[in-house]
Amino acid sequence: MSGATAAGRGDVLLRMSDVHVRLSGSHILQGVDLAVRQGGVTALLGRNGAGKTTTVKAALGLVPSTGLVELTGADGRVHRLSGRRTHEVVRLGVGYAPEDREVFGGLTVAENLALAERRGSAHHHDRVFELFPELRTRGRQLAGTLSGGQQQMVAIARLLLNDNRLLLVDEPTKGLAPLLVAEVAEVLARAAEEVTILLVEQNLTVVRRLATDAVVVDQGRVAWSGSAPDLLADADRTRELLGVAPSGGHAA
């Protein structure tokens, strides 16, 4: 089937080619090349400070970059994201959950969700409240007074509220208790049945549970990319690339 007319499972949804980012004088991304396949979960891996967050921000236009970023639309057309402003990228169906959640602490939970209702999209409050009933009962609570886990629920709820084609999720399990880590992984696994995910994640158990593909960045460049199960099956390579060994062989 020709990729020009129909975007199907396995075709490239997001492509970044030779992306460079310079921030306050330092050359942070030095020519990132990566492709995210439609229909899977691509894990974006790498040591602290490797450039994972910056890669995600460059795709969204949250940091200035050079190079090419492209997203395949629902109609199979390829949209050039480079040079677009962030809100325009997002309106193409890109959801973003940032590393530090960035919920609006001075707004209530209900206001945080209302703000996330994107125009041009249906708003699936029922889906969100089914996954996170707490967000309904805590609607009038200020988001700043929620626990870290509850704030992460708000951040993920913002992703699932709208119809998205691609979710950019940056370290969603960071700092969470083990039980919550499993819960977040479960929610993302369910979301992945309907939407493509680019997932930055340090917890390799979660990666093993979710990821179909993996991209490893190191010092602002892509050091490895391929199948996630293949990478995790190779303990030596994982240790060499990430500095940690994959734990156990079983998903959480």
Partner: peptide, 21 residues
């Protein structure tokens, strides 16, 4: 008003929700 209150708190996250702040 909601956009303004949120924007005062974190402008770039408002744009990341698809809003032209």
């Amino acid at each position: 008003g909601l956009v303004i209150r949120a924007g005062v708190e974190n402008r770039s996250m408002v744009t990341a929700l698809g809003i032209d702040v």
